[in-house]
Design a binder for these strands. Structure first.
Length: 874
RNA sequence: GGGCGCUUAGCUCAGUUGGUUAGAGCGUCUGGUUUACACCCAGAAGGUCAUAAGUUCGACUCUUAUAGCGCCCACCA
């Protein structure tokens, strides 16, 4: 450790290899130990790691290292997700750059391309997870398309099918015309779009006049099969049961009555298009209306739209329909209108409601002891089986779950788990099985598998248990499941967390995890979202690791960020934590220079049997308090607070005070002991630097498997702790006096201290005070003789005098002391007011009142001394 | 239309059961080569904790309203 500064780049990769080789990442099933499990949220196999992954990895690694050191069998299971739509889109884009598309290639060849691509990005991701220092168990790495996981997916599908939860139906679904696939409700993103309201005349058949109707999607009129009005609407009452003529098309459509129609809204009359609007679809079913679909899968109009429109893109058709309506005098007016339109969450294409034959999961059917999937999913949060951090997300979760409709799980993309359903070409039998059947019960071998794949969230929903070997391996599952913590961004609460709860409570009859820890989004310094489309806003974690080290990046992500809240990240912040890492390095260098080889293996007993000074007892007491604090905070997942506490202790107390004091008189056992414990406490946060330093202390074991310290009664010296605080205050007061009065900082001056009841203590620490306050001479006595013409201060009943006549301006000093008196006086009045308040004395707890009384006594005494001193300034 | 969050020093943020003279880092200012560290050390300036009312002996902390910013959910033609 010769270098003056720590170079993260030189050691991080090596340290990681050491850990990996040691087997520390791979816990065993050990009945003597408790298990602690985290399933790593699988990064999409579509590319590279970003800061969202970094914060996830940092938080989870802290949790896992902490528990591992506490003696748990701590499993952190890594893996990747095939991310069906996202991955397929990505590869399609790559193909497009070469001027190809998937239909040209065909299913087989296209899938080969995707596989290649995935293998590539998986390798990148693995490497990048390692760069963060993640202590996950690579021997148990999983991928959603592994054989084992695929078997789990098929098994669950069959089970749900047999329970009547999975059904196939012709329904109106969300359709992405670019992906040419369905989307689940929550995969649709609503965005406000500036559109228009088109007011259209619908002429009546048997009488003069027309009904005026407003719509934002005029092209859908081509598929209208009715007009609906409210039964109590006076304007339209007489028209109910009559017929209107559909403009441009000429079709006769009935005017029906339904209470669904809002009289106030628009014109109060509603065009009904069962095939292209969810509400109209319901109306259509209710009133037995004809359903006409005018769209094809890629969003162009089909022949049902009529010759004039067939083949047009939906937006072209909108323009043309509007123009034609206007030309034929059916268009009354067009007004601007902001409205919310659904978009595909993967490719941002506008969604169309579209009728098609799809597979669904029934979320309302009672199957778990009379409860439906959604009821059970709500219950496990309500009864506290699963805790969400922060808890305010409970409400969001309930709201989502309660409004959940049947989940559409089939997708028309190619990349993913093929739906395990085969159709007999001869008898129309539907065969559902985990493995490909070779013949139908009618004897026919002409079987055709369903063309669709499963929603990617179907397999992700099984992640906590499919990765542990279900349905085959029961041992690991029983030991490690339910997992302990699920840690992820709040943005996938619905997509993933909710799906895991739903799928796991159904399949296993138990919860997938006990605690959900939701971290926030990482934003830029000015609060913007970092987005790939704006590369200048993005910070690349790998660049930062290269520049400042993984430890610094980890701290910058974790300290000052709390669950559920977004946090801003910028380079200066990371640089600041790099400085802290360097501080660790240098304090360790100092300690190593000062201790003997024998101190490396120091034990608590060694420390207690050594000659402990007050300062030793002070730092040991503080260490013990910090051990308790950090342990408590990590225990309740207050990572930021835990990190802050050990950071402050390391830098602000151990380095700034204890090491400085040790330059006067040192106890090498305590130096070694405290450093080692700090390294242990810091290790979950900054694993690399702490392991490097640990290695320089010639330890038998790697730090990663060192035992986490416990609170020690023997290390609690409260009297000495208070005493050293007095010494520190005296030193700070002298420094402050010098600095405020512009005394040359390098000049060794003289000081006189009247120690009062602290005299013995201050006499013992006289060398320390001299050194830390840069004094040439120091006189400590118990008598309180007044010093003429000195700088003076009183702290904790100790009088401090710096005789500097001739050097300083005594008028200034007089003013300064005057201000001091004023401040104390104000404080005194404040406290006295409190103590004379009858309510306070009657109702406040005893300790609080005592504390106030002590403070009052201290202030009175200090005030008296300052006032006397003021008299001695001439 | 429903739900939620944020507002604390110039900047970025802590402050978890109400008891402080409200903290940290960065930045600023003043000074410093001392058994490690200038990626350092010492000292200082800087806040009526968004506003208003309420509960309480006591409010940054609890309640209610207001304002500004932001997020999520929603099939209003």
């Amino acid at each position: 450790m010769d270098a003056k500064s720590y170079n993260a780049k030189d050691s991080e990769d090596q340290i990681y290899k050491k850990w990996e080789k040691s087997g520390a990442f791979s816990p065993k099933v050990d009945p003597k130990k408790k298990s602690f499990t985290i399933s790593m949220p699988p990064p999409n196999a579509t590319g590279t790691l970003h800061l969202g992954h970094s914060i996830m990895l940092a938080i989870e690694d802290i949790m896992i290292r902490f528990k591992r050191m506490q003696g748990y069998s701590a499993l952190w299971l890594p893996g990747t997700d095939h991310a069906a739509i996202a991955t397929q889109n990505k590869v399609e884009k790559l193909l497009a750059e070469k001027g190809q598309d998937r239909h040209e290639l065909g299913r087989e060849k296209f899938l080969e391309e995707v596989k290649k691509f995935v293998a590539n990005s998986q390798a990148t991701i693995r490497n990048q997870i390692r760069k963060m220092g993640s202590s996950c168990d690579w021997s148990r790495e999983r991928y959603t398309l592994d054989d084992g996981l695929t078997k789990a997916v098929m098994t669950v599908f069959v089970k749900m099918y047999e329970d009547g939860l999975i059904y196939r139906g012709n329904r109106l679904v969300n359709w992405c015309p670019r992906c040419e696939s369905t989307l689940a409700d929550d995969e649709v993103e609503h965005k406000d779009i500036q559109g228009h309201f088109y007011h259209i005349k619908y002429p009546l058949k048997d009488e003069k006049g027309y009904i005026e109707i407003a719509t934002t999607r005029p092209e859908t009129m081509l598929a209208d099969t009715a007009i609906a009005v409210h039964p109590k609407d006076k304007r339209y009452k007489k028209l109910i049961g009559k017929t209107a003529i559909l403009p441009l098309v000429g079709r006769e459509i009935p005017i029906i009555a339904d209470e669904y129609v809002d009289i106030e809204l628009g014109t109060g009359a509603l065009k009904v298009t069962p095939a292209h609007d969810p509400n109209d679809f319901e109306l259509g079913k209710k009133h037995d209306l004809q359903t006409i679909n005018i769209l094809t899968e890629n969003g162009t109009l089909n022949k049902e739209a009529g010759k004039n429109y067939e083949g047009l893109d939906r937006f072209e058709a909108r323009k043309k329909v509007a123009a034609d309506l206007e030309e034929q005098d059916f268009l009354i007016k067009t007004e601007d209108h902001m409205h919310s339109v659904g978009h595909c969450y993967r490719c941002s294409t506008q969604i169309e409601p579209f009728i098609s034959l799809q597979w669904f999961i029934d979320v309302n059917k009672p199957v778990i002891n009379g409860k439906s999937l959604k009821e059970r999913s709500i219950e496990v949060i309500k009864d506290g089986s699963i805790k969400i951090l922060p808890s305010r997300f409970n409400k969001t979760y309930y709201n989502w779950m309660e409004n959940l409709h049947d989940w559409c799980i089939s997708r028309q993309i190619w990349w993913g788990h093929r739906i395990p359903v085969w159709y007999c070409q001869e008898c129309d039998e539907e065969i559902v099985a985990t493995e490909s059947p070779n013949k139908c019960k009618c004897g026919s071998k002409k079987l055709k598998q369903d063309q669709d794949t499963l929603d990617t969230w179907f397999s992700s929903g099984l992640w906590t248990f499919s990765t542990l070997g279900w349905p085959d391996n029961k041992e690991e599952l029983e030991y490690f499941h339910p997992t302990s913590v699920m840690e992820t961004g709040y943005d996938i609460l619905f997509f993933w967390i909710a799906r895991m709860i739903l799928m796991t409570t159904y399949t296993l009859g138990e919860i997938p995890f006990e605690t959900v820890y939701l971290h926030g989004l990482i934003r830029t310094k000015s609060g913007e979202k970092m987005s790939k489309s704006k590369p200048e806003t993005c910070i690349d974690p790998l660049d930062m690791i290269e520049k400042y080290g993984a430890d610094a990046l980890r701290l910058s992500l974790v300290i000052g960020s709390t669950p559920g809240n977004d946090t801003r990240l910028y380079e200066e912040k990371i640089a600041g934590y790099r400085n802290f890492i360097n501080k660790i390095w240098n304090s360790a260098r100092y300690v190593l220079m000062n201790i003997e080889e024998g101190d490396y293996s120091v034990t608590l007993e060694d420390v207690l049997s050594s000659d402990l000074s007050r300062t030793d007892k002070w730092i040991l007491t503080r260490l013990d308090e910090v051990v308790a604090g950090v342990t408590k905070n990590l225990g309740k997942h207050s990572i930021s607070e835990a990190g802050n506490e050990i950071y402050e202790f390391m830098w602000g107390e151990f380095c700034d005070w204890y090491l400085e004091m040790s330059k006067v008189k040192k106890n090498t056992k305590v130096l070694s002991y405290v450093l080692k414990n700090i390294l242990i406490l810091l290790h979950p946060f900054v694993p690399f630097i702490t392991e490097v330093v640990w290695g320089n202390l010639n330890q038998k074991n790697l730090l990663i498997v060192e035992t986490w310290p416990k609170k020690q009664k023997e290390l609690h010296f409260s009297r000495e702790k208070e005493e050293v605080e007095v010494v520190k205050s005296v030193i700070t007061a002298i420094r402050s006096l010098r600095s405020e009065s512009n005394v040359d900082a390098s000049k060794k001056i003289q000081a006189v201290i009247h120690g009062g009841r602290h005299t013995e203590l201050l006499l013992e620490k006289i060398e320390i005070i001299k050194r830390l306050a840069n004094l040439g001479e120091l006189e400590v006595s118990s008598n309180d003789k007044k010093m003429k013409n000195s700088l003076s201060a009183v702290v904790k009943e100790v009088g401090i005098y710096l005789p500097l006549e001739g050097i300083i301006d005594m008028n200034e000093e007089k003013k300064r002391l005057g201000r001091e008196v004023e401040n104390l006086q104000k404080l005194l009045t404040h406290i006295e007011k409190k103590l004379s308040n009858k309510g306070f004395v009657a109702k406040a707890p005893k300790e609080i009142i005592e504390k106030e009384e002590d403070r009052k006594a201290g202030i009175l005494s200090d005030l008296k001394k300052i006032k006397e001193q003021l008299k001695h300034i001439s």
